[in-house]
Protein backbone atom coordinates (compact mmCIF):
# COMPACT_ATOMS: atom_id res chain seq x y z
CA UNK A 1 0.00 0.00 0.00
CA UNK A 2 2.73 2.38 0.95
CA UNK A 3 4.58 1.59 -2.29
CA UNK A 4 1.51 2.45 -4.31
CA UNK A 5 1.16 5.72 -2.51
CA UNK A 6 4.77 6.61 -3.22
CA UNK A 7 4.32 5.84 -6.86
CA UNK A 8 1.31 8.04 -7.36
CA UNK A 9 3.10 10.82 -5.57
CA UNK A 10 6.07 10.54 -7.91
CA UNK A 11 3.76 10.48 -10.86
CA UNK A 12 2.02 13.60 -9.63
CA UNK A 13 5.36 15.31 -9.33
CA UNK A 14 6.34 14.25 -12.83
CA UNK A 15 3.14 15.56 -14.25
CA UNK A 16 3.50 18.62 -12.14
CA UNK A 17 6.93 19.35 -13.61
CA UNK A 18 5.93 18.72 -17.19
CA UNK A 19 2.76 20.72 -16.70
CA UNK A 20 4.78 23.59 -15.30
CA UNK A 21 7.18 23.52 -18.23
CA UNK A 22 4.33 23.42 -20.62
CA UNK A 23 2.59 26.36 -19.02
CA UNK A 24 5.84 28.29 -19.23
CA UNK A 25 6.22 27.45 -22.90
CA UNK A 26 2.70 28.50 -23.75
CA UNK A 27 2.90 31.73 -21.82
CA UNK A 28 6.25 32.41 -23.45
CA UNK A 29 4.79 31.97 -26.90
CA UNK A 30 1.96 34.28 -25.93
CA UNK A 31 4.48 36.75 -24.57
CA UNK A 32 6.59 36.79 -27.68
CA UNK A 33 3.41 37.11 -29.68
CA UNK A 34 2.26 40.40 -28.31
CA UNK A 35 3.52 41.70 -25.01
CA UNK A 36 7.23 41.42 -25.77
CA UNK A 37 7.12 44.36 -28.15
CA UNK A 38 9.19 47.46 -27.72
CA UNK A 39 6.53 50.01 -27.04
CA UNK A 40 8.30 52.84 -25.28
CA UNK A 41 8.18 56.47 -26.15
CA UNK A 42 5.89 58.50 -28.34
CA UNK A 43 4.86 57.62 -31.88
CA UNK A 44 4.17 60.19 -34.56
CA UNK A 45 0.53 61.15 -34.62
CA UNK A 46 -0.99 61.06 -38.05
CA UNK A 47 -2.92 64.34 -38.12
CA UNK A 48 0.01 66.40 -36.92
CA UNK A 49 2.37 64.63 -39.26
CA UNK A 50 0.19 65.55 -42.21
CA UNK A 51 0.13 69.22 -41.22
CA UNK A 52 3.92 69.33 -40.92
CA UNK A 53 4.41 67.42 -44.14
CA UNK A 54 2.20 69.82 -46.07
CA UNK A 55 4.20 72.75 -44.77
CA UNK A 56 7.55 71.14 -45.52
CA UNK A 57 6.32 70.34 -49.01
CA UNK A 58 5.30 73.94 -49.70
CA UNK A 59 8.32 75.36 -47.96
CA UNK A 60 10.68 73.77 -50.42
CA UNK A 61 9.98 76.37 -53.02
CA UNK A 62 13.23 75.52 -54.67
CA UNK A 63 12.13 71.92 -54.91
CA UNK A 64 8.91 72.67 -56.73
CA UNK A 65 10.75 74.99 -59.06
CA UNK A 66 13.11 72.19 -59.67
CA UNK A 67 10.24 69.92 -60.62
CA UNK A 68 9.03 72.45 -63.17
CA UNK A 69 12.52 73.23 -64.32
CA UNK A 70 13.49 69.68 -65.05
CA UNK A 71 11.99 70.46 -68.43
CA UNK A 72 13.93 73.72 -68.71
CA UNK A 73 14.78 74.82 -72.19
CA UNK A 74 17.33 77.02 -73.84
CA UNK A 75 20.90 77.80 -72.97
CA UNK A 76 22.68 80.48 -71.03
CA UNK A 77 26.21 81.58 -70.37
CA UNK A 78 27.95 82.18 -67.11
CA UNK A 79 31.14 84.18 -66.89
CA UNK A 80 32.99 86.29 -64.43
CA UNK A 81 36.16 87.18 -62.67
CA UNK A 82 37.80 86.06 -59.45
CA UNK A 83 39.23 88.86 -57.32
CA UNK A 84 41.33 88.45 -54.22
CA UNK A 85 40.11 90.39 -51.17
CA UNK A 86 43.07 91.51 -49.12
CA UNK A 87 46.80 91.65 -49.69
CA UNK A 88 47.88 88.75 -51.82
CA UNK A 89 50.75 86.77 -50.38
CA UNK A 90 54.07 86.53 -52.16
CA UNK A 91 54.89 83.05 -53.29
CA UNK A 92 58.18 81.61 -52.13
CA UNK A 93 60.37 80.00 -54.79
CA UNK A 94 60.19 76.32 -55.51
CA UNK A 95 62.49 74.24 -53.39
CA UNK A 96 64.76 73.09 -56.19
CA UNK A 97 66.94 70.36 -54.73
CA UNK A 98 68.68 69.02 -57.78
CA UNK A 99 69.72 69.81 -61.32
CA UNK A 100 69.75 73.49 -60.48
CA UNK A 101 71.28 74.38 -63.84
CA UNK A 102 68.17 73.09 -65.62
CA UNK A 103 65.53 73.74 -63.05
CA UNK A 104 66.23 77.39 -62.35
CA UNK A 105 65.85 80.45 -64.57
CA UNK A 106 68.97 82.63 -64.46
CA UNK A 107 69.93 80.87 -61.26
CA UNK A 108 66.63 81.73 -59.63
CA UNK A 109 64.10 79.10 -58.68
CA UNK A 110 60.73 80.15 -60.08
CA UNK A 111 58.03 81.13 -57.58
CA UNK A 112 55.53 78.56 -56.49
CA UNK A 113 52.07 78.59 -57.98
CA UNK A 114 49.93 77.60 -55.01
CA UNK A 115 48.12 80.93 -55.33
CA UNK A 116 48.75 83.12 -58.33
CA UNK A 117 47.28 86.61 -57.98
CA UNK A 118 47.96 89.28 -60.58
CA UNK A 119 49.37 92.36 -58.85
CA UNK A 120 47.23 95.43 -59.20
CA UNK A 121 43.99 93.87 -60.46
CA UNK A 122 44.24 91.18 -57.76
CA UNK A 123 42.79 88.73 -60.26
CA UNK A 124 43.17 85.09 -59.19
CA UNK A 125 44.53 82.70 -61.75
CA UNK A 126 43.95 78.96 -61.96
CA UNK A 127 40.55 78.82 -60.29
CA UNK A 128 38.57 75.90 -61.70
CA UNK A 129 34.81 76.22 -62.21
CA UNK A 130 32.75 73.33 -63.46
CA UNK A 131 29.13 72.26 -63.68
CA UNK A 132 28.63 69.28 -61.38
CA UNK A 133 25.82 67.41 -63.10
CA UNK A 134 24.52 68.55 -66.43
CA UNK A 135 21.01 67.31 -67.23
CA UNK A 136 21.61 68.06 -70.92
CA UNK A 137 24.64 69.09 -72.90
CA UNK A 138 24.76 71.65 -75.68
CA UNK A 139 26.56 70.68 -78.88
CA UNK A 140 29.22 73.26 -78.18
CA UNK A 141 30.07 71.52 -74.90
CA UNK A 142 30.21 67.98 -76.22
CA UNK A 143 33.46 66.11 -75.51
CA UNK A 144 36.34 67.61 -77.43
CA UNK A 145 38.63 65.86 -79.82
CA UNK A 146 41.40 68.41 -80.32
CA UNK A 147 44.80 67.48 -78.94
CA UNK A 148 46.19 69.46 -76.04
CA UNK A 149 49.85 70.17 -75.49
CA UNK A 150 51.14 69.74 -71.98
CA UNK A 151 54.72 70.84 -71.83
CA UNK A 152 57.34 71.07 -69.12
CA UNK A 153 60.31 73.40 -69.08
CA UNK A 154 62.69 74.47 -66.31
CA UNK A 155 61.18 71.66 -64.28
CA UNK A 156 57.82 73.38 -64.36
CA UNK A 157 54.59 72.25 -65.95
CA UNK A 158 53.87 75.09 -68.30
CA UNK A 159 50.13 74.63 -67.94
CA UNK A 160 49.53 74.61 -64.23
CA UNK A 161 45.86 73.64 -64.42
CA UNK A 162 44.36 71.94 -67.44
CA UNK A 163 40.76 70.92 -68.07
CA UNK A 164 39.94 68.12 -70.50
CA UNK A 165 37.04 65.99 -71.62
CA UNK A 166 37.00 62.21 -71.61
CA UNK A 167 38.47 60.85 -74.79
CA UNK A 168 40.56 63.94 -75.42
CA UNK A 169 44.25 63.35 -76.09
CA UNK A 170 47.09 65.07 -74.35
CA UNK A 171 50.61 65.33 -75.72
CA UNK A 172 52.88 65.36 -72.74
CA UNK A 173 56.07 67.02 -73.86
CA UNK A 174 59.38 67.48 -72.19
CA UNK A 175 61.31 70.56 -73.35
CA UNK A 176 63.96 70.17 -70.68
CA UNK A 177 67.36 68.71 -71.14
CA UNK A 178 66.64 66.10 -68.50
CA UNK A 179 64.23 63.22 -68.10
CA UNK A 180 60.91 63.76 -66.38
CA UNK A 181 58.28 61.34 -65.35
CA UNK A 182 54.69 62.45 -65.37
CA UNK A 183 52.45 60.85 -62.81
CA UNK A 184 48.79 61.70 -63.20
CA UNK A 185 47.39 60.59 -59.86
CA UNK A 186 44.13 58.71 -59.94
CA UNK A 187 44.53 57.78 -63.60
CA UNK A 188 47.13 55.05 -63.40
CA UNK A 189 49.36 56.98 -65.81
CA UNK A 190 52.97 57.30 -64.74
CA UNK A 191 55.43 57.46 -67.60
CA UNK A 192 58.94 58.60 -68.15
CA UNK A 193 59.14 61.39 -70.73
CA UNK A 194 62.66 61.51 -72.16
CA UNK A 195 64.43 64.82 -72.60
CA UNK A 196 62.99 66.56 -75.65
CA UNK A 197 60.45 63.77 -76.13
CA UNK A 198 56.67 63.55 -75.99
CA UNK A 199 54.22 60.85 -74.91
CA UNK A 200 50.52 60.91 -75.73
CA UNK A 201 47.90 60.29 -73.05
CA UNK A 202 44.21 59.76 -73.60
CA UNK A 203 41.72 60.73 -70.86
CA UNK A 204 39.90 57.58 -69.79
CA UNK A 205 37.57 58.54 -66.98
CA UNK A 206 36.18 61.72 -65.53
CA UNK A 207 36.77 62.98 -62.00
CA UNK A 208 34.90 65.03 -59.40
CA UNK A 209 37.94 67.11 -58.52
CA UNK A 210 41.12 67.86 -60.44
CA UNK A 211 43.80 65.19 -60.21
CA UNK A 212 47.26 66.13 -59.12
CA UNK A 213 50.03 65.72 -61.64
CA UNK A 214 53.54 65.26 -60.32
CA UNK A 215 57.01 64.29 -61.33
CA UNK A 216 58.70 61.86 -58.97
CA UNK A 217 62.15 62.83 -60.18
CA UNK A 218 61.56 66.50 -59.37
CA UNK A 219 59.08 66.23 -56.54
CA UNK A 220 58.37 69.97 -56.40
CA UNK A 221 56.76 69.89 -59.83
CA UNK A 222 53.00 70.14 -59.55
CA UNK A 223 50.10 70.61 -61.91
CA UNK A 224 46.43 69.74 -61.88
CA UNK A 225 44.26 68.06 -64.44
CA UNK A 226 40.49 67.98 -64.47
CA UNK A 227 38.93 65.33 -66.73
CA UNK A 228 35.19 65.87 -67.29
CA UNK A 229 32.45 64.17 -69.27
CA UNK A 230 31.32 67.44 -70.83
CA UNK A 231 32.85 70.78 -71.71
CA UNK A 232 31.14 72.72 -68.91
CA UNK A 233 34.30 73.79 -67.15
CA UNK A 234 36.65 76.72 -67.14
CA UNK A 235 39.97 77.72 -65.58
CA UNK A 236 40.43 81.36 -64.71
CA UNK A 237 43.16 83.14 -66.65
CA UNK A 238 45.69 85.72 -65.52
CA UNK A 239 42.87 88.30 -65.44
CA UNK A 240 40.93 85.97 -63.15
CA UNK A 241 38.35 85.60 -65.91
CA UNK A 242 36.40 82.49 -66.78
CA UNK A 243 33.48 81.71 -69.08
CA UNK A 244 31.26 78.66 -69.47
CA UNK A 245 28.96 78.99 -72.45
CA UNK A 246 25.71 77.27 -73.31
CA UNK A 247 24.85 75.70 -69.98
CA UNK A 248 21.25 74.43 -69.54
CA UNK A 249 18.93 77.32 -68.73
CA UNK A 250 15.71 77.32 -66.74
CA UNK A 251 16.82 74.71 -64.23
CA UNK A 252 18.89 74.78 -61.08
CA UNK A 253 22.59 74.36 -61.73
CA UNK A 254 25.34 73.60 -59.30
CA UNK A 255 28.86 74.69 -60.09
CA UNK A 256 31.90 73.62 -58.15
CA UNK A 257 34.51 76.27 -57.59
CA UNK A 258 37.87 74.70 -56.92
CA UNK A 259 41.35 75.94 -56.26
CA UNK A 260 44.37 73.92 -55.29
CA UNK A 261 44.70 75.93 -52.09
CA UNK A 262 40.98 76.19 -51.38
CA UNK A 263 40.26 75.81 -47.68
CA UNK A 264 36.84 74.18 -48.03
CA UNK A 265 36.55 70.40 -48.03
CA UNK A 266 37.98 68.84 -51.17
CA UNK A 267 39.85 72.11 -51.88
CA UNK A 268 36.62 73.89 -52.65
CA UNK A 269 36.90 77.66 -52.81
CA UNK A 270 34.25 79.72 -51.06
CA UNK A 271 33.85 83.22 -52.40
CA UNK A 272 31.07 85.76 -52.34
CA UNK A 273 29.09 87.35 -55.11
CA UNK A 274 27.78 90.52 -53.50
CA UNK A 275 26.24 91.79 -56.76
CA UNK A 276 24.24 88.62 -57.42
CA UNK A 277 22.02 87.73 -54.46
CA UNK A 278 20.40 84.85 -56.40
CA UNK A 279 23.71 82.99 -56.41
CA UNK A 280 23.93 80.73 -53.38
CA UNK A 281 27.28 79.54 -52.04
CA UNK A 282 27.67 76.41 -49.96
CA UNK A 283 30.53 75.96 -47.55
CA UNK A 284 32.07 73.41 -49.93
CA UNK A 285 32.49 76.05 -52.59
CA UNK A 286 29.46 75.01 -54.56
CA UNK A 287 27.39 77.62 -56.30
CA UNK A 288 23.69 77.13 -56.88
CA UNK A 289 22.10 79.32 -59.54
CA UNK A 290 19.31 79.16 -62.09
CA UNK A 291 19.79 81.02 -65.36
CA UNK A 292 17.19 82.32 -67.80
CA UNK A 293 17.44 81.23 -71.42
CA UNK A 294 19.93 83.30 -73.44
CA UNK A 295 21.02 85.03 -70.26
CA UNK A 296 24.67 85.97 -69.92
CA UNK A 297 25.34 86.00 -66.25
CA UNK A 298 28.36 88.01 -65.27
CA UNK A 299 29.69 87.46 -61.78
CA UNK A 300 32.31 89.27 -59.82
CA UNK A 301 33.55 86.77 -57.30
CA UNK A 302 35.29 88.22 -54.29
CA UNK A 303 37.42 85.66 -52.51
CA UNK A 304 38.53 86.47 -48.98
CA UNK A 305 42.03 85.50 -47.95
CA UNK A 306 40.75 82.96 -45.44
CA UNK A 307 39.14 80.97 -48.25
CA UNK A 308 42.67 79.79 -49.02
CA UNK A 309 44.62 77.33 -46.99
CA UNK A 310 48.14 78.63 -47.00
Amino acid sequence: MEYRWRLTNKMKRLFGISGFLWMLAVSLSGLSGCSGRADMGPVADAANVKAIRDVLATSKGAGSEQAAAATGTGWATIKGQFVFDGDPPTMPPYNVTKEAEICTINGQAPPQEMLVVTPGSKAIKNVVVFLRDASRVNDSAKPKTDRVEFDQKHCLFLTHVVGLTVGQALDIKNSDNTGHNTNILGSGFNQLIPAGGAIPYKVQKDAQVPNKVTCSIHPWMTAYMLPRKDGYFAVSDADGKFEIANVPAGEPLEFQVWHESGAAPGNGLVGTTPDAPDVKWSNRGRVAVTLKPDDVKELKVVVPAKAFRL
Binding site: A25, G33, G36, R37, A38
Partner: peptide, 10 residues
Protein backbone atom coordinates in the same frame (compact mmCIF):
# COMPACT_ATOMS: atom_id res chain seq x y z
CA UNK B 1 9.02 30.69 -30.51
CA UNK B 2 12.70 31.26 -31.28
CA UNK B 3 12.03 31.08 -35.01
CA UNK B 4 8.95 33.25 -35.12
CA UNK B 5 9.91 36.06 -32.82
CA UNK B 6 8.09 39.26 -33.94
CA UNK B 7 10.17 41.88 -35.71
CA UNK B 8 9.62 44.42 -32.96
CA UNK B 9 10.10 42.15 -29.97
CA UNK B 10 12.47 43.22 -27.21
Amino acid sequence: VVRHVPVDAQ
